[in-house]
Design a protein around this nucleic acid. Structure first.
Lengths: 269, 269
DNA sequence: CCGGCGTCGTTTACGCCGTAAACGGGTGGG
DNA sequence: CCCACCCGTTTACGGCGTAAACGACGCCGG
């Protein structure tokens, strides 16, 4: 039922082109030899590997051979497997900053905190959908500090979040409460969305079995399930994400204005 | 927190009270030897083991030896490690039904769907907090059907959910939408809550390091973090959970009444 | 009473894993 | 010219999941 660990075997050593480099030593900068390792190259290879083969299939030996290298070579650049995974998470989350054409999350002149939260949500969702097999790692790896809540995993990100809300008029308490509500929302929605993607994929690649024998198993015992099965199968993730996000923003806005009007230090969400 | 069956290590034959059962079907029946394995005993031992040592520490050999048995003995009752983990998840989730004194989720005469959703939320939260190291498994193991959304992991549970909402006046579409919003909410909140528990625990048991050298690292670059650090550290999980849950219920109620008044088949959340 | 057989845990073995440690080749600076 | 260092390879070890063969033991029909 589970994807299992890959399947097909080895068959390594595929391309001797790797050696065909032209160019002198430094002259044109580093020569980008395909075999020249560095930490970034290894992390990117790990991300690609997980995207293609799944997390369970990632081993040091296989990752090495996907780079045309023995497993032990990786240990010059990465302290071990756990640290490699941490690096993968960091690198994936960091695509928040550099990627989206002009939608930089970081810049200060937002159109307001609502706009910031919407951009940030869409950015994280883009990342989750781009790397559905990596996202569970983003969600579940122990964070740097105990109050860093996945998937908003970097101090820089939390700092930017709190700063933007402060500028928007939130008290410290309200901003922190918003941070927690927002991270819960993101984590729940995105993790379920990528889980569903993974589940559908893993259904496709094993069409085997006893024909259509137990397609609906004992669905007869579950009338509500049977009746709504097609509804349950529909994917409205995008619309539901927007809906929940809007609801959260409304709630935050309400809290913000109530706090302002009452003048007190309400803060609790 | 749960009855727990075993605990200590090998050294079998510990409690002759077990034999003092008042009769079985035929004569003395089986004598409930402590070493007598069965699937349930193994699953419970696995749950206890994960609660105490963490998921990463669970291996077939170690689980076996915690039962006073070689690893291979487990394979008579469990097809393999993956299936064992599935069994653990099922067993933990099933404590929803049998445990809570009178608060049975299952019974039909609820005080309404709101009450049902509140009970269910509290039940799942109780499970998550009772087994913080197991809950990530509940959250992330591939579900039985692609539309089963953790942590509401059983067909029976989803059936009961949908049925209750139907009785409460929800259309099929609205009930399904509510199911998705509700599961997202639960997963996000509970996963973050148990993650934080785990993080705090893992901080306590490694007080070593370079003294207080880098306690606040480069906090100076993050003024908002520095200022709100104590706020961020506070644990208001319970209150936030209730608040978010109430908000979700309000939202569902609004949708339900709008759908009724407009008479149409609104259904979207 | 007994002999075979089913049940259940053990032993042995295999291939893969993460990684420590020793190794070697090529290259650039003295 | 040579040697020291960088960097990937080789070798090795203990632990993992699990297949397969192996016994000990209790029951049951003859």
């Amino acid at each position: 039922m589970v994807p299992t660990i890959s399947d097909q075997t080895s068959d390594d050593v595929r391309d001797p082109d790797l050696v065909a480099v032209q160019e002198g030593p430094e002259a044109a900068g580093e020569l980008t030899r395909p075999a020249g390792l560095d930490r970034e190259k290894i992390l990117q290879a790990a991300i690609d590997f997980i995207d293609e083969q799944g997390l369970a299939a990632l081993t040091m030996r296989r990752l090495g051979s996907s780079l045309g290298v023995e497993a032990m070579a990786l240990y010059r650049y990465v302290p071990g497997r756990e640290d490699l995974l941490d690096g993968v998470v960091d690198r994936v989350v960091e695509t928040l900053w550099d990627d989206r054409d002009g939608d930089d999350i970081q810049v200060v002149d937002h159109s307001g905190w609502q706009d910031y939260l919407v951009r940030l949500a869409h950015g994280m969702r883009r990342i989750a959908l781009a790397h559905p097999a990596v996202f569970p790692l983003v969600a579940s790896r122990p964070p740097a500090a105990p109050w860093v809540r996945p998937p908003l995993r970097s101090l820089r990100l939390v700092e930017s979040f709190l700063g933007t809300l402060r500028e928007g008029g939130f008290s410290d308490q309200a901003a922190v409460a918003a941070y927690r509500a927002y991270s819960s929302f993101l984590l729940g929605h995105l993790l379920l969305e990528v889980t569903q993607i993974g589940a559908q994929v893993s259904l496709l690649d094993q069409p085997e079995g006893d024909e259509q024998a137990q397609r609906e198993t004992d669905m007869s015992e579950y009338p509500n399930l049977a009746r709504t099965e097609s509804l349950l199968g529909q994917d409205k993730s995008a619309a539901e994400f927007e809906e929940s996000l809007e609801n959260l923003l409304d709630r935050l806005e309400r809290v913000l204005h109530e706090a302002r009007n009452s003048g007190g230090d309400v803060g609790d969400l």
